[in-house]
Design a protein around this nucleic acid. Structure first.
Lengths: 193, 193
DNA sequence: TCCCGATGCGTACATATGTACGCATCGCCT
DNA sequence: AGGCGATGCGTACATATGTACGCATCGGGA
């Protein structure tokens, strides 16, 4: 009787990738090792090198999964908005709501930023992520505004995760309104000079 | 004749800390080791454990130095502004100019974010950094605006460092003006509704 | 049904790493 | 002037890590 059964385990590969994200979230890239991920995914060490040529390859897959997942959620939330006002509210939600700017997601994003800064393929993943976000915003706002909003979401989310006393929802809504108000519309020439 | 002279080397400790930042910038926290920092600072390995109880202690000192340095520069640039218009221009500079949002600084910031997320003392360092930035902004803008501006600087800087085609200076100035325009002041009722 | 390639599993091994330690040497305080 | 504590320096060592490898086993296509 063998100490451990051989398992039939399709989608083991996917499970390893998810486990990698867990380990990164809990320990950081610096302490993410084959053995820790293997333990988290409940697979033997040998399985790591079988499914992934190198540790960096695994990290790349993990971060790509992160980008896809979070990006999809972002797009979904914005697609649910029918009017511009609803879109504005969606943006506020994305910043304030606990469902997107999760501590875990913020943490993973930081790790990704640091990692991608030195890794061209991952850099492209980040760029694609940004492009996707802006595309989602462009469904409701003009291109320039979309870019600005995207950056604002980024900045406010980060500060929210660090600041001891984060801004109130109302303040954030006010900011979003300021950034999305149509300058050419209501009062021509007002904001200029 | 000994292979290497014993050196008189005050401020060796400070040099090690600076070298640590160099290594982090070049290799990332994940690949920052005693030996690499020692080589970068041109000191023997034994010197590391003499000056720093642990590798984490060294990293903490390095990141604190980063925060102090960058924060001072930020404050300095803003203090140079005499009028609100000049302050606005300073903010634009901080985002666009190559002197603050250096690739190196951005990179180091990412590493810090990731590291601080799991390290309470460093977290406090980050909070102090943020507080300092906002205090500098409050010299020219009301508190709420200062917070928003700070977040906007963060977001735009990051996106600038990732985006293949970053926003033009004029666009950024327009954003800053939008965020800092006094709604109650110049053109009553203009920006509302 | 059969078999072969894909997948599972354990282990080995060279290397890099954090940290401790012992001794040498010199600046600085009295 | 003297000595002592701080600082410099080399090295040792246990451990963790990335990766390779060999064999076992099973599922699914021919």
């Amino acid at each position: 009787m063998p100490a451990s059964q051989r398992r039939y385990d399709p989608d083991r590969r996917a499970r390893i990738v998810r486990a990698a994200l867990d380990v990164i979230a809990e320990r950081g890239v610096a302490e993410t090792t084959h053995r820790r991920v293997a333990a988290a995914a409940d697979v033997p060490l040998g399985s790591m090198t079988y499914h992934f040529a190198t540790l960096d390859a695994l990290l790349a897959d993990a971060f790509s999964l992160l980008a896809d997942t979070v990006s999809a959620r972002f797009t979904e939330r914005l697609a649910a908005a029918a009017t511009v006002d609803e879109a504005r509210e969606a943006v506020v939600d994305l910043i304030v709501d606990e469902s997107w700017a999760t501590p875990r997601n913020m943490l993973l994003s930081y790790e990704l930023y640091a990692y991608a800064a030195r890794n061209p393929p991952l850099r492209r993943v980040m760029q694609a992520w940004m492009a996707q976000s802006q595309a989602a915003l462009r469904r409701h706002f003009p291109p320039d505004t979309a870019k600005v909003l995207d950056a604002m979401i980024e900045g406010l989310s980060i500060h929210r995760s660090v600041d001891a006393e984060p801004m109130a929802r109302d303040q954030i809504r006010a900011v979003v309104e300021r950034l999305t108000a149509d300058p050419a519309g209501a009062v021509p020439g007002a904001g200029q000079r």
